[in-house]
Design a protein around this nucleic acid. Sequence first.
DNA 1: GTACAGATTGAG
DNA 2: TCAATCTGTACT
Length: 187
Amino acid sequence: MKFPRLKRSFFIRDTLTVAKELLGKYLVRRIKVGKIVETEAYIGPGDRASHAYGGRLTKRNKTEYLIGGHIYIYLCYGMYWQLNITTERAGKHECVLIRALEPLDEKSKSKKVASGPGKLCKWMKLDKSFDGEDLTKSKRIWLEDRGFKLKSSQIQAAKRIGIDYAGSWAKKPWRFYLKGNPFVSRK
DNA sequence: GTACAGATTGAG
DNA sequence: TCAATCTGTACT
């Protein structure tokens, strides 16, 4: 492997820090690679927008409770998968939603195949079989640091998307993306 | 067991 | 603006 994989120590830090520093990192799915350009932080159990709000633990979200560096993936609206990466320590049920990737090859770029959480998973062929996958050990998928230098001035914070039901939590600026990047999701 | 809403998307 | 389509939650 040419580039260093992100280690456990990267993921077990504060969720907002991880959400920001994931920007510019590369998600590698065997031959497919994309640079992360948009993320959102979900911080249970206080966060009403989180599936772990109030300490809820269901068959669907149990992987969200794993130690940082694991995949929590779930089906939304019955058709679209949402890729999350757990953070912090086991039992902390906090995670980062990966919302958009910038593909490496020009053909995929022109189609914006990963500009949205549902599209991203469809492109990378991610589904339930990846639930609970360990990104620090898996041979199918992992995260790499390819030397992209992230400057704080490039990080744009904004309200999270699609969670208006969460009241004041919906206003938290916990969505982060690379300023001016054309591959962030619409809206 | 039934009803309903959701961390979305692409077509109209 | 709307429907597609499945899982968890709150009812009966």
